[in-house]
């Protein structure tokens, strides 16, 4: 609106300095931005992983630099019944614990998603097993499973009088296996429950109202709305849960150390047992490397079977 004769004020542009031009160069920027990430990954991820894989193909022991032996470690393990026992129990431990964690975790998440009194308090309590240090959990369970001082035995023998003798939780192989699974489930439920609760809360309440008007029973609302809407998150949580469980070490090692008679060794504890106390670094590394295919398979399964949902993508017509 001002008179056209008035000259416009123009912001003076300074010529960029040589340094500024250098940092504006795309190639320099790319390298500068990538360097920290690549550096960290190399030092803290790739190097230990690479070293571990390398060791698996050597006969290194503690205190002696080994030589390249090719697949010898793996050939030896293939004929080792203790290794196959650990493979079996790793899979069994992971499968049973995962199923239980998801069944109970989903149930808990559904409960917490209702309007219950003291909701935030209950949520805080649910998180407790998760924030407890694993070793503390292990010690607690070790005590709970103790042949003499077990509280469970006390309840059944002294308080209820239903049994005459104490339980022997960790003394024989199957009770020991299930006892470890119970401890793992107790510890893992909060992660599953809280993650699934977050997933449940992203489901719009009006979908349930629409289903209610469409005549859906509570079970049908769960089956046709909750489950399909939760599946993508379920897949991710399950992938993580499987990886955590399969690679679990602390709980098992602290409670049973793989016993009795190697019946509760999982691959991680066996690898440690052979590698560090046993001194056979190469063999321990080979056991650890043997875990990789299982983890890759579990990840691919949950990613492809559960996570990819066509309705989530804005794809064109069929």
């Amino acid at each position: 609106m001002s008179a056209a004769a008035e000259p416009h004020w123009v912001h003076a542009r300074k010529e960029p300095t040589a340094l500024a031009r250098f940092f504006d160069n795309k190639a320099v920027l790319v390298i500068a931005c990538l360097f920290p990430a690549v550096g960290l990954l190399t030092v803290f991820l790739t190097y230990p992983l690479g070293l571990g894989v390398f060791l698996a193909f050597t006969d290194t022991t503690i205190g002696r630099r080994g030589v390249w032996v090719g697949l010898e470690n793996f050939q030896y393990l293939a004929s080792d019944p203790i290794f196959w026992g650990a493979v079996f129990y790793s899979v069994f431990y992971t499968a049973v614990a995962t199923v239980l964690k998801f069944a109970l975790g989903l149930w808990l998440a559904l409960l917490l998603n209702q309007h219950t009194p003291f909701k935030s308090l209950i949520r805080a309590i649910v998180l407790l097993p998760w924030i407890t240090p694993t070793v503390l959990t292990a010690i607690a369970f070790w005590w709970i499973y103790d042949p003499q001082f077990s509280i469970i035995s006390w309840v059944f023998v002294e308080a209820l009088g239903w049994r005459t003798e104490n339980f022997n939780f960790l003394g024989s192989e199957w009770p020991a296996r299930f006892s470890l699974i119970a401890a793992n489930v107790w510890r893992g439920i909060p992660f599953v429950a809280i993650s699934l609760l977050a997933g449940l809360q992203t489901i719009s309440p009006s979908l349930y109202e629409a289903a209610l008007l469409d005549g859906a029973t509570p079970w049908q609302r769960f089956r046709y709305i909750t489950v399909p809407m939760l599946l993508p998150i379920l897949a991710i949580v399950m992938t993580f849960s499987i990886i955590f469980t399969f690679t679990d070490f602390q709980l098992v090692y602290a409670i049973t150390r793989g016993g009795p008679v190697n019946s509760t060794h999982i691959l991680a504890t066996l690898a440690f047992q052979r590698g560090i106390p046993g001194g056979q670094l190469g063999e321990g590394a080979a056991i650890a490397v043997a875990m990789i295919p299982f983890l890759v398979a579990a990840t691919l399964f949950s990613y492809f079977a559960l996570a990819r949902r066509k309705w989530q993508q804005g794809e064109g017509n069929d």
Binding site: P228, M229, R309
Partner: peptide, 10 residues
């Protein structure tokens, strides 16, 4: 409904 409440996975 105002937001239509269509089932996104169907």
């Amino acid at each position: 409904f105002q937001n239509y409440a269509l089932y996104p996975h169907m």
